[in-house]
């Protein structure tokens, strides 16, 4: 069920490459101009780009329909990698809201935190977040056939994690929590009817979404978690072993159709 193809592409991102990296200065460029310039470079055969001084420009990576690598310095705007199909984006800091919105394939790795609704309606590919995430991460995320999107958050997330989640994997590692702290996230999995959420660390069971069940991890779950923990650790140069210790819980949808009877009389 887990899409492992991105692991190979991950190696590409982190390994030294002989390919030339082309720098693009984003200063004062409107988002349309900037995205067109990046697309033009890719059409001309560029495979590694570095965008400098980004300041809120939206939709970066959306129109690059190829497995190119894009490093972003500065603060990318909303909907980073929206509808993205193929590229591997590395953000050297925080991303804003809507990162990976309806993303189809590829990788977004954030050396910082993301805002609200990261991975909104995501249907393939992977998002790795070193630190924390805002509200409604993975809302409406879905999977089909071999495509299984994944979001790994190193720290913690705010409320409505996995809202209306229909498929895919969300893993939250709780690294930013201090001893004794619980995840602040409330209403996790509200409306969830597919996919799975793994939480490392304590959380408040009184405020889970009504549609969510809690279970210990079985062997298959551990295999999935291990893969993503290793990927996270390798990407952000962390030791995976401590991240595999601690209490893990699996949150799953108790029914595939939570609202099947909502409007039926």
């Amino acid at each position: 069920m887990v899409d492992l193809r991105w692991l190979t592409s991950l190696d590409l991102v982190r390994s030294e490459s002989s390919e030339e990296e082309i720098e693009v200065d984003a200063r004062r460029l409107p988002y349309r101009t900037l995205n067109e310039r990046l697309a033009e470079l890719v059409r001309q055969g560029a495979s590694r780009l570095r965008v400098l001084a980004v300041s809120g420009q939206r939709y970066l990576g959306t129109n690059l329909m190829a497995p190119v690598r894009v490093a972003i310095d500065g603060v990318p705007g909303n909907d980073l990698g929206a509808f993205m199909d193929g590229p591997q984006i590395e953000v050297m800091g925080d991303a804003q809201d809507g990162c990976g919105n309806t993303m189809n394939s590829g990788l977004i790795a954030v050396h910082g935190s993301v805002g609200d609704i990261a991975g909104h309606s995501m249907r393939g590919g992977t998002i790795l977040v070193r630190d924390n995430a805002g509200y409604r991460v993975g809302i409406h995320m879905k999977e089909y056939g071999e495509r299984c999107p994944a979001i790994v958050i190193g720290g913690t997330a705010q409320h409505f994690l996995g809202e209306y989640m229909a498929g895919g994997v969300i893993l939250v590692l709780g690294r930013s929590l201090e001893t004794g702290d619980i995840h602040p996230s409330r209403y996790i999995g509200t409306g969830m009817h597919g996919g799975v959420i793994y939480l490392r660390g304590k959380f408040d069971e009184r405020f889970l979404g009504k549609e969510v069940g809690v279970a210990p991890l079985d062997d298959d779950d551990w295999a999935t978690v291990r893969q993503y923990v290793f990927a996270y650790a390798r990407y952000f140069d962390e030791d995976p072993e401590p991240l595999l210790r601690g209490s893990y819980a699996k949150l799953y949808p108790r029914t595939r159709r939570p609202y099947g009877r909502l409007y039926a009389y």
Partner: peptide, 15 residues
């Protein structure tokens, strides 16, 4: 204290 923090950093040159 209770809110998840984000990265804070120094931008070399304000634009």
């Amino acid at each position: 204290r209770a809110v998840p923090k984000r990265v804070a950093r120094i931008i070399e040159e304000p634009t």
